[in-house]
């Protein structure tokens, strides 16, 4: 009976659900990356470190500090949400600080030099956070645990439902933000920093806001990457999630927020599909992990600037 019941679940639907949930994580990470890139002209190789640090801070606030649980007796979801919001504020601060300390002196340098600075940041942050996490993963203490909803043909974990809702809300928020006054200022800065300054826009503040948004999105991605069904807590290798989100960024184009979302979802589904269908021994172990890169290379070969990216106009 057990086996019969198992067979009723559709493998396709399961693949799509897990692919989309992976894809929303990629989309969140890619979106933060693209916002930072567009607004501040920084290719942030430390985005993975930001996600890991953010998730680690969340674990610290929710478990070690037990905030706000040590003061108030709240229902788990509300209490956890408050911890997460606190952690998000802290990681936004980390993002702002990183930009202010390491990247502000590099304003106006070429993209490559700045990218190398972020590579250095990545090494530093990852080393420190790895040391603090230690060998045991830190639990997120999320209120959902491993509960799942059975829809008859597919099982969706509660975390995945939460993740879809949160991601949709964040995408919507970012969309609304770009229509606000500050958002327009950010778009102006992305277009031309000097002209934006001439219009009275405080470019420094815009940089800080962009990094705060990027860090928050990275943290949310990091949190959902560290809960059931993916992980049991923050590992240092949460950062590799972001390395797999890079293909999503390339797929969508380095400078397109819409592209980041579409690319993220596409790469997530492709990876999940490879995981459940391409299991011939010829593919070896861990093939699904490199599917994003294969997709990226094929896309780069056909459209070297991504699907939604602007083609670079080259002048002498």
């Amino acid at each position: 009976m057990e086996i019969l019941a198992q067979a009723e679940y559709s493998q396709l639907a399961g693949t799509i659900v897990s692919g989309l949930s992976l894809g929303t994580i990629y989309a969140l990470l890619a979106m933060g990356f693209v916002i930072i890139f567009k607004a501040t002209q920084v290719v942030n190789f430390a985005h993975g470190a930001l996600a890991t640090v953010g998730a680690f801070i969340t674990a610290g606030v929710a478990v070690e500090l037990n905030f706000p649980g040590r003061f108030l007796d709240l229902p788990p979801l509300l209490g956890w949400s408050i911890s997460v919001v606190t952690a998000l504020a802290l990681s936004a601060l980390v993002g702002i600080l990183l930009e202010r300390v390491f990247l502000r002196p590099m304003v106006g340098e070429d993209l490559f030099s700045v990218a190398i600075v972020t590579l250095g940041m990545n090494v530093i942050l990852m080393t420190i956070v790895t040391d603090y996490i230690g060998p045991d993963p830190r639990s997120m203490a999320d209120p959902w645990g491993d509960a799942a909803a059975d829809l008859g043909f597919v099982i969706i974990a509660h975390t995945e439902i939460a993740q879809f809702l949160v991601a949709a809300a964040l995408v919507l928020l970012v969309g609304v933000f770009f229509r606000s006054r500050t958002g327009v200022a950010m778009r102006a800065t992305a277009f031309d920093q000097e002209a934006a300054r001439a219009q009275g826009i405080n470019v420094g503040v815009i940089f800080a806001i962009a990094w705060a948004i990027g860090a928050v999105l990275a943290t949310v991605g990091g949190i959902f990457g560290s809960v059931y069904p993916r992980r049991i807590g923050v590992f240092p290798d949460t950062a590799f999630l972001v390395f797999r989100a890079f293909p999503a960024i390339i797929l969508g184009g380095l400078d397109s927020v819409v592209g980041a979302v579409v690319g993220g979802l596409a790469v997530g589904v492709a990876e999940a599909a490879a995981g459940s269908y391409l299991n011939h021994p010829l593919f070896g172990t861990g093939f699904s992990g490199i599917v994003p890169y294969l997709v990226m290379m094929i896309v780069l070969f056909i459209r070297p600037y991504g699907i939604f990216g602007t083609e670079e106009v080259r002048r002498v």
């Binding site: 490559f112 070969f301 070297p304």
Partner: peptide, 21 residues
């Protein structure tokens, strides 16, 4: 050669991961 600038950095980054696999 088709890919230039930072896109090349990303493409070669993919090469490392594919190589490791």
């Amino acid at each position: 050669v088709r890919v230039r600038g930072l896109y090349l950095a990303f493409a070669t980054l993919g090469l490392v991961f594919i190589g490791e696999w």
